[in-house]
Nucleic acid binder design. Structure first.
Lengths: 196, 196
DNA sequence: GCAAAATACTAATATGTGTTAGTTTTGCTG
DNA sequence: CAGCAAAACTAACACATATTAGTATTTTGC
């Protein structure tokens, strides 16, 4: 009866993906049912299959869209001629902004990727590894330039990325602190912590 | 036929909990089945119900055991007369050690508590909030003592705890870096980052 | 060694889930 | 308005899952 509304900027599929991300975040991918997703959209469950291939497909698209965005940003950072500290700060700021603007999808990508089917999970993990390694490279560069203290660069990488992945910028938190406050405090904390 | 073996140090229930934690970590609570758990123990699924009340109960026991340990440790830290920086370092070290020794349970507690039933989830979250607030109190104390820089103490709290929760100290990582290395580097990173 | 308690097994149930089949309705386009 | 594609609906299937019932077997305590 009710029809799936397309987003003002985007297709019906985008609308489904957005709702799926919200649902998967709230309940977890396995606990979330296609029937619930359908209800969010005011539609019966089988109707969704006119628009999607499968439930897994939704998770895939969410995870790989997010991975793509982060990878693309990392590429521009690596190509810039900023010093290691500024590069690191840029990475941190991008994570915060992205989490701020696309909380559900980023959260799902970070926390539910394990529910991808094996092949996709492996692919996702490989992309994540590459991303981590890029940041480790930046930190190593900073150490060599004596910008950063001597340290275990891989541990520093994981510390930074863990701190960022743990952020949960839901609406509630947006009232507690602003985007700018977050950026300033976290960059300070995470970059200064390794700076000489 | 096969009987559930008790751990060398612990009851049969402990043995089940340990396997459950490993399984829940690997596949996620919802994706993990009682049958799989039974198989890990060399037993048919219904046999487990001679030892456990339900699948949910296992998750509950894991989550609340971990929460209790962290809360207890925080209490001793708060009672100590160390300064704020040392208190913060003690908290960080405890997280790392606990994750190192009890990876599966800590991981499950951190990542699967949302699958608790509503009442338990609320209780768990309240404990976590209280824990976070204790750390925020320590940081505020440090700021007042001019040990730490002026900052948004709640953001610093979340940064530190996120970084620690994101740690995944599975066997693989234990080869990559030692416990001591982790402690030194993460304390350095996370405490120095806020120290004047 | 025997009674009783603990614990295993098999069989079955109730429920929820993703998904397909088949059909009807909707809404655009000529 | 006719016709066609998009997309909704109802009904149903196939499957997995947690859990219970009922029974056999093993272990324990005397």
């Amino acid at each position: 009866m009710a029809k799936i509304k397309a987003l003002t900027n985007g297709t019906k599929k985008d609308s489904i993906l957005k709702n799926a991300a919200a649902l998967f975040r709230k309940k977890g991918f396995r606990a979330a049912s296609v029937r619930e997703l359908a209800e969010m959209m005011g539609v019966e469950a089988p109707s969704l299959y006119n628009h999607i291939g499968s439930k897994s497909e939704l998770l895939q698209e969410i995870c790989f869209e997010v991975a793509k965005d982060f990878t693309a940003h990392m590429k521009t950072v690596l190509a810039s001629d900023a010093n290691a500290a500024d590069k690191t700060a840029a990475v941190i700021r991008f994570h915060i902004t992205k989490m701020y603007n696309d909380f559900d999808k980023v959260y799902v990508s970070d926390n539910e990727w394990k529910q991808l089917q094996k092949k996709e999970a492996d692919d996702f993990l490989a992309q994540r590894r590459a991303y981590e390694n890029s940041l480790t490279g930046i930190i190593d560069e900073g150490i060599k330039q004596k910008l950063f203290a001597k340290m275990h660069s891989r541990i520093a990488t994981l510390t930074i990325l863990s701190a960022l992945r743990g952020l949960e910028l839901r609406q509630q938190n947006k009232k507690e602190f602003t985007l700018k406050e977050l950026e300033i405090n976290m960059v300070q904390h995470l970059v200064n912590g390794i700076t000489i």
